[in-house]
Design a protein around this nucleic acid. Structure first.
Lengths: 179, 179
DNA sequence: AGGTTCATGTAACCCGTTACATGATTTC
DNA sequence: GAAATCATGTAACGGGTTACATGAACCT
């Protein structure tokens, strides 16, 4: 059996905060800055099923007077354990390069899942990873031939600036934890 | 028939610059800042097949003395037309929120595909989109309840700062085009 | 009576991941 | 002669996208 996808962990983390129905979760993805996750029923409901099959959540049908019945999902203790395992995973270069969205998802829920010390440690390793990665991108940019177009160079530069902004953010965030 | 995926357009754009084999393209993805695209054969070769089926590229087997034979792919005029169509697509809010990687891919090749005027126009609409989107995220952050964890707030802030860095970058980039 | 919101689901399709397979050529 | 690199492929699997379907309750 596979471990959950990024969407699955997003659902698990939200259910860790509050029990909710599939519909609630869809609305949340639609209405908040977590918009980048899919709010389509074809993604959410099957994902919840899979979490249930793994035993990470349990759905209970509620019959509410005058309202359509819905399934309220709660995280189980196995789900909490899995969430902790995932949140505590080491941070790799590959995470930063190809999976940054999941990196930030992990951090966003880390205080609640693993506590503030873990968040601070996570920021430290993120800072280390970014501090190593960004200069290698700069080297590449500086070495770019003159025949590369302006937009080509600028596109790379925008990525570098994003990473640099994230590095600065991480340093300030770490300071906030250490205060 | 479907239009290509983001990976397909990345391949098409690279083949627009230079003819190449699947292996060349894999190496490129592996060795450059375009690392975030998959370099796995299970992604590249089928994607090239699909582009060929659409008539966007043509692969020709080369028999080179003493070297393993390889298929060299060239972009066709239909492929160039498709690349132009894609590059010239309007920029939507959804692109910015959920598909930023493809937005930057489009821009990175825009000078060569559509010319500098198109790149400048693209930057203008990106600036407009970001200038409208970022404040709505700020509003959301400021309205966050006190019960939201520090890491939760910081995660959102990191996203905002990335968008703000991109907005600043876009303004400078536009100035570079207008000079 | 008819449209909107609440609420959950399913099915087809596509494509990326992972893993395996093959064989030639170059390098040590 | 073994290992690494060049080079191209295939097959199973899983999950996201899109679209469709259903029906109750609420509002006008």
């Amino acid at each position: 059996m596979n471990s959950p996808t990024t969407l699955g962990y997003a659902l698990l983390a939200l259910l860790h905060q509050n029990s909710a129905s599939g519909y609630d979760l869809r609305k949340f993805f639609f209405a908040t800055p977590m918009k980048s996750f899919s709010d389509s029923p074809g993604a959410i409901y099957p994902a919840l099923r899979r979490l249930e099959k793994h035993g990470f959540v349990r759905g209970q049908v509620q019959d509410r007077a005058g309202l359509r019945r819905r399934r309220l999902f709660r995280i189980t203790s196995a789900g909490q354990a899995e969430l902790k395992r995932w949140a505590g995973l080491g941070l790799t270069r590959d995470d930063v390069v190809s999976n940054f969205k999941e990196v930030m998802l992990r951090f966003g829920f880390m205080d609640e899942v693993l506590g503030r010390e873990a968040s601070a440690r996570f920021l430290k390793s993120l800072i280390a990873e970014l501090a190593a990665y960004v200069p290698s991108l700069r080297v590449y940019l500086d070495a770019m031939e003159k025949n590369v177009s302006l937009s080509g160079k600028l596109a790379l530069e925008s990525g570098i600036l994003q990473y640099e902004a994230t590095l600065q953010w991480a340093k300030k965030a770490l300071a906030a934890y250490e205060r």
